[in-house]
């Protein structure tokens, strides 16, 4: 939190120094502040902040890629695959040990990416019921969720 305030402070200073108040200038200032925080990590104690922010942006990138990919899959299925060849099914996914926020983010991401929709979360917040759309074995789907989405989310929430 302190690191974020510092980052914002540098951005505001940059805005004051520049000629015009504009969004582009603010973003430049913010990036400069972030670079400074990354450079002087040991002094400012901003290890966590820098790591989390880069992880969050990395996750945004991964998520975008997965989202476009899954859209492509759905469109392919919608236009070209005969209906009786679809193979939808319900599977469960283990989310034990994740915090509420992580569960929320993960279920949101699952709803938007690889051909899956979260259907139900068990009462004790330990398992998802996921509807899988036209994919191979359930274990492959679980592995994909674990390696892409779950790892990405845990990288910046912990």
């Amino acid at each position: 939190m302190k690191s974020f305030a510092l980052n914002l402070f540098v951005a505001v200073i940059w805005l004051l120094l520049g000629q015009e108040l504009s969004l582009v200038n603010f973003i430049i200032g913010f990036l400069i502040g972030f670079a400074l925080l990354a450079l002087f990590r040991p002094v400012l104690g901003s290890h966590g902040y820098v790591r989390r922010t880069t992880a969050a942006f990395l996750y945004l990138f991964i998520f975008g890629k997965q989202f476009l990919l899954s859209c492509w899959n759905i469109f392919h299925a919608a236009l070209l695959v005969p209906v009786d060849q679809l193979n939808p099914r319900l599977i469960t996914y283990d989310v034990e040990g994740l915090s509420r926020l992580e569960i929320l983010l993960l279920s949101h991401s699952i709803s938007l990416t690889p051909g899956t929709t979260t259907v139900e979360i068990s009462e004790d917040f330990s398992t998802f019921l996921i509807h899988v759309f036209n994919t191979g074995s359930p274990d492959e789907v679980r592995d994909e969720i674990t390696t892409t989405l779950r790892r990405g989310i845990l990288a910046f929430t912990r």
């Binding site: 989202f67 899954s70 859209c71 759905i74 919608a78 209906v83 679809l86 939808p88 929709t117 509807h131």
Partner: peptide, 29 residues
């Protein structure tokens, strides 16, 4: 076009769950 294809999906897919897929992803994009 994306919304159009998603709606074709909504019409063609066999059950509610598959339609929710088409709706959720297609409409968002």
């Amino acid at each position: 076009l994306v919304i159009f294809v998603a709606m074709i999906g909504v019409v063609r897919f066999p059950d509610v769950f598959c339609r929710a897929h088409a709706l959720g992803k297609g409409m968002t994009l």
